[in-house]
Amino acid sequence: MDISAFYYENNTIRLFCYGENKSSYDKFYVDYNLITHQIITYPMPNYNIEGVCSADGNCYLLTNGHILATDKAMNEKMERLIDEQVYTNVSKVSSAFTEIMMESDTYFYILNSRDFKETGKVRK
């Protein structure tokens, strides 16, 4: 099993995982409650997750040039396209608790989930 992304909110750690079983390539996510120590595994919607952050009970997923806002049950609430020219030049994706940063050789783009705005700045 490999972990592609994770986030923490309200005493729960959510791990986005992928692994290989005997018959197929599995994608799933796991919720681990730090108070009750309960582990619940869910099948993953058909997303290829590159970054994740959370705020105010929502999860924001970077997937194939889109930002998807989902609720705790992974139901899509909102979708935002990232400019194709920006996304195709991205060489590194980093995630923090409330931000996803996409980097290229000359730019970095920050998505802050608290205000769900995309900004771009020239790297000097």
Rank of each mutant, 00 (worst) to 15 (best):
A5S: 12
A5W: 03
E9H: 05
E9A: 05
N10M: 00
T12R: 10
L15W: 07
L15Y: 14
L15R: 05
Y18D: 03
E20L: 04
E20W: 06
E20K: 07
S23V: 03
K27L: 06
F28H: 03
V30E: 12
Y32M: 03
N33E: 12
L34W: 04
I35F: 12
T36N: 14
T36R: 13
H37E: 15
H37P: 00
I39M: 14
I39R: 15
I39C: 12
Y42Q: 10
M44H: 08
M44F: 09
Y47C: 04
Y47W: 15
I49H: 05
E50F: 00
V52N: 03
V52C: 08
S54E: 13
S54K: 09
D56Q: 15
N58S: 13
C59E: 07
L61N: 05
L61M: 08
L62N: 02
L62W: 01
T63H: 10
N64I: 01
N64E: 15
N64L: 11
G65I: 03
I67S: 04
I67C: 05
I67G: 05
I67T: 04
L68D: 01
A69K: 13
A69F: 01
T70C: 13
K72A: 09
N75V: 10
K77H: 05
M78W: 14
M78G: 10
R80I: 02
D83K: 11
E84Y: 12
V86I: 15
Y87F: 15
T88W: 11
N89P: 01
S91H: 03
V93D: 08
V93A: 08
S94I: 11
F97S: 14
I100V: 05
I100S: 01
E103Y: 13
S104F: 03
S104D: 10
T106Q: 11
Y107G: 00
Y107F: 10
Y109C: 00
Y109N: 03
I110N: 13
N112K: 02
S113E: 07
D115A: 01
D115H: 13
